[in-house]
Every structure is written in C-alpha cells, then in structure tokens.
C-alpha cells in the first residue's frame, strides 16, 4: 500500500474495519498505519470504544474461567458406570 492509500485508510477507517483490527490485534502485529487508523477511529467513535472494552472484558474473563473449575458439571451415573465397565473389560 502506498503512502497516500495509507493516509486515506487512517482517515476513512469505519467501524467494520476498526472492529476487525481490534480483533486482529490479539492475533497478529498490526502495521503502523493500522495502529494509527485504530487509534484515530477509537478517538472519534464511542461504540467502537465500547467494543474494545468488551474485548478486554472477554479476554479477562476467559483467563479467569480457564483457571477455575466449574463444579456444577458432573458425569452422569449411567456414563460413569458405562466407562467403568469399559475400562474393566479392557483391563
């Protein structure tokens, strides 16, 4: 992309592109003009700032969730017995 195109991108980036960049940010290093576009867009766009916050919350919760077990879920009695029987049969 040439310089003029990059400048145009920075100035004209919309919510659709900005939200993709926000998601991409955790997947790949953004190019300089992409970072500039995102910063510029977030400065002027409330909904996209909200979306950025949502992504932060989601990431934070996912980290906490994967560390904590969920005690409410149990193997059913039937499957418990079935798995035991299968193991026994193969012992």
């Amino acid at each position: 992309m040439n310089l003029l195109k990059k400048i145009q991108f920075v100035l004209n980036v919309n919510c659709r592109q900005a939200s993709q960049l926000l998601s991409d940010k955790s997947e790949r290093p953004l190019a300089g003009y992409e970072r500039a576009a995102l910063r510029f867009h977030l400065f002027v766009c409330g909904p996209c700032r909200k979306y950025a916050l949502f992504l932060l919350i989601l990431r934070d919760v996912m980290m906490r969730i994967s560390a904590e077990p969920n005690d409410a879920v149990h193997l059913s009695h039937e499957s418990r017995s079935r798995i035991k029987a299968t193991l026994e049969a193969h012992s």
């Binding site: 919309n14 919510c15 659709r16 909904p47 909200k50 979306y51 916050l53 949502f54």
Partner: peptide, 23 residues
C-alpha cells in the same frame, strides 16, 4: 458482516453499556 454493519461500515446495532473491566 453485511448484516452486522450498515452503510459506510457503521454498526447496525452499536455496542453499548460496556464499562469497567473489573468484574
């Protein structure tokens, strides 16, 4: 994405209500 974003790439249903990330 066409359903999620309106003309000129604006949110059709804009994110709102998200605040503070310390739950």
């Amino acid at each position: 994405f066409d359903a999620k974003f309106a003309k000129k790439g604006k949110w059709s249903d804009a994110p709102v209500g998200w605040s503070g990330s310390n739950l």
